[in-house]
Design a protein around this nucleic acid. Structure first.
Lengths: 226, 226
DNA sequence: CTCTCATTCAAACGTCCGTTTGAACTATGC
DNA sequence: GCATAGTTCAAACGGACGTTTGAATGAGAG
């Protein structure tokens, strides 16, 4: 059972232990699903780019949708972990402010995922796309992966904004979720005047996060009904 | 040249002049594209639901993408017209406030399109989906349809918020665009606690519009960098 | 070496896709 | 009446899709 088998007949030095077929499939799936969406991306396009046989998808994952599910789970894991960690840390020091909560939610989605060389923006776009895929089935696949953390944030936000009605807090929360996904997916880059307003280098990720947080904080603090 | 020909061999009274094949195709395309996205909806599904032959699409429009383009143009026309009208009206009375501008932009997208019996939500969802379709090609197809009005709003918003940096105004604008599309597409209805926060009846459309406007006004007024 | 089992492979499966064809039908103009 | 042009139709086109198959290949275990 060669768990980390080398590619095919290629020459492989001992360093850089070469991604397994399974990892290559996940990486390329992230990229292609993020570019063209689930329906718009074929398994053949993925397997060709990953230098894998088309049957490898069904061997390693079982189906196209199972590949997507695995990719979503892998991409969301560090984001969810970081969000949980920040929330624990905040709550240990008493009632967090709305700004602290928003920051703890948005930054892991943008910051942590955008600054990591080549793959950061790829993962971010993938997550953003899946979160608002045209198919309800796909969206629910994403929701299932982030629901537990979401419930905690919703409760914490309500506590931080006691004057806001529960449905207003929920409204603000879905708006935060939506704007984050939109910026992650880079679908806004075609808007007028937004050529420079979006992310293009790792450096700008921080600016984008700060702008989005400021935008959301103002909206939460003064834009919700009581 | 029977411009408004009747269906097939069906019996048709003189009243309710029966939609033409072309109109039925556009109506069903709006519905299905809005439900499943462009890639996720087949011409066969559309033509079957429209009780039309599959060749009718290529006869009346030329291709699947041309059908989408025609549907987008038809759906956006009244929204653009109303936005232009409101902007003209506001500018005739001097410098509009940010709230007035946001209202003039958002309300035609939600209000005007949501309250019209059965078809309102269908059209809204269609527009929202196309605006953020996974395919850049499709998104640009939407952008081309709304670009002219967008430029005017961007300029007016900058004038209403002289202290905000141009890139911040653009940032707020794309956020407004994104949130509007998200609510139109009803993709947020699966979020936790949002069961009632979204639109379900025509009556709630007004509430949603007011909530969204309040949210955006607060963000524009206090959430943009100078 | 031999057995074992995980992995890869080329090839084919049946189905659905968008598009095209050419004939049939329909209503009007002359 | 016939001619004409707009429209609908069943059928087929080639190609791409997700999935399956069964044999080949690979590396460890005994």
């Amino acid at each position: 059972m060669p768990e980390r088998a080398v590619a095919g007949g290629k020459e492989n030095s001992v360093e850089t232990p070469v991604e397994s077929t399974r990892e290559r499939l996940l990486n390329i799936a992230e990229q292609r699903f993020g570019e063209g969406g689930y329906e718009g991306t074929s398994l053949r396009a993925i397997t060709v780019a990953a230098a894998a046989n088309i049957a490898a998808v069904n061997y390693h994952f079982g189906s196209k949708e199972a590949l997507l599910r695995a990719a979503v789970a892998r991409a969301m894991a560090p984001v969810n972990t970081e969000r949980r960690r920040r929330l624990d840390q905040l709550e240990a020091k008493g009632q967090p402010t709305a700004e602290q909560l928003i920051r703890a939610f948005v930054e892991p989605g943008l910051d942590l995922v955008l600054r990591r060389g080549e793959r950061g923006p790829v993962v971010a776009r993938f997550i953003g796309r899946v979160a608002f895929d045209p198919s309800r089935r796909i969206r629910e696949l994403y929701a299932a992966e982030s629901d537990p953390v979401e419930a905690r944030y919703l409760a914490a936000l309500q506590a931080a904004l006691p004057r806001a009605a529960p449905e207003s807090v929920a409204f603000g929360y879905v708006n935060m979720l939506g704007l984050l996904a939109l910026h992650q997916s880079q679908a806004l880059s075609r808007a007028p005047g937004a050529e420079t307003a979006d992310l293009d280098a790792g450096e700008d990720a921080g600016k984008l996060a700060e702008n989005l947080i400021a935008f959301l904080v103002a909206a939460f603090d003064r834009g919700l009904r009581s």
